[in-house]
């Protein structure tokens, strides 16, 4: 008898949670999708049609917005640059941060505490406040106006949060796993590569997503640290459509779609990979 009521109240309970959850999710999805769908179809309207009626669906597919934005904004080259900056900065940052995370999380040296705090302080520094000194530094080192000079600050600014994530994850890994490997005679670097790295798959996935998103959307470093058009990245290119005296909303919307699409694709494709990463990394005791 008591088991029965318990079952009913539990299923009613679950139902209430499910309804709440569905409403919540649908609301959020609407907020996200509605503007994006509007952006997408508006990008196929010519500028005069957009300013005359902002809601109307396009009467014909005005693809010229895309071809023109692509050509005028030099978006082909900028996309390649963005991919190069983002991918290399992400890989370097995640790899370095994971190493540092192992060092800080498991070695038990006293200096780790200081270094760790030193990294965390970096979370508080805004890009704009270091812009001028950074430019001075890079011109003195003659690495301004190079791809290397762009990637370096991406990495440096990405490290604090990544080190934070890696350290807190690795700290939570049971010492026993590491000890087993040590008894087998493995060195620290070997343990890092064969024990820590595979176990850290979930945090690596999270780190990769964050790092990728941040680097992709990074804006100020590129235009201050480079002068050559050939080194600029996609956000700088898109921004060119977004301001100033001239205006063509058709071109702007097309450029916005071009800038947004790669990130959405990245997430949709890697989402599954990252998921599997989560699953593989789950610690089974």
């Amino acid at each position: 008898m008591s088991k029965m009521t318990l079952g009913i109240s539990r299923s009613r309970d679950v139902l209430a949670w499910r309804i709440f959850a569905s409403v919540f999710m649908v609301f959020f999805t609407f907020l996200t999708l509605a503007p994006l769908i509007w952006l997408l179809y508006s990008s196929f309207k010519p500028h005069p049609a957009i300013i005359r009626n902002v809601f109307a669906l396009p009467t014909q597919l005005f693809v010229e917005n895309y071809t023109k934005a692509w050509r005028l904004g030099n978006l082909g080259l900028y996309t390649i640059n963005s991919v190069v900056y983002t991918a290399s900065a992400t890989v370097i940052t995640v790899f370095l941060a994971l190493g540092a995370g192992y060092g800080f999380g498991k070695f038990g040296y006293r200096i780790s505490g200081y270094l760790y705090t030193f990294f965390i302080m970096g979370l508080l520094v805004t890009a704009h406040s270091v812009l001028v000194p950074l430019f001075i530094l890079e011109t003195r080192l003659s690495i301004d106006d190079t791809r290397f000079g762009v990637i370096l600050p991406y990495v440096a600014f990405g490290l604090p949060f990544m080190v934070y994530l890696a350290t807190s994850f690795i700290r939570g890994i049971p010492d026993s796993l590491e000890e087993v490997a040590r008894i087998d005679g493995a060195g620290y670097l070997k343990i890092f590569w064969h024990v820590i790295r595979p176990i850290s798959a979930p945090v690596v996935a999270t780190m990769t997503i964050f790092s990728f998103v941040n680097n992709w959307n990074e804006f100020v470093f590129v235009f201050v640290l480079t002068s050559k058009q050939s080194l600029r990245s996609l956000p700088v290119g898109v921004n060119a459509f977004a301001g100033g005296m001239s205006r063509d909303y058709g071109l702007l919307f097309a450029a916005l779609v071009i800038a947004t699409l790669p990130m959405i694709l990245f997430y949709v494709f890697f989402h599954e990979q990252l998921k599997r990463g989560f699953a593989a990394g789950a610690i089974k005791e």
Binding site: V84, A87, S88, A89, D145, T146, R147, F148, I151, K228
Partner: peptide
């Protein structure tokens, strides 16, 4: 990514 990054970086 790494190779691409450094080739481009060095190529300037």
């Amino acid at each position: 990514a790494l190779v691409g990054g450094f080739v481009f970086a060095g190529g300037q």
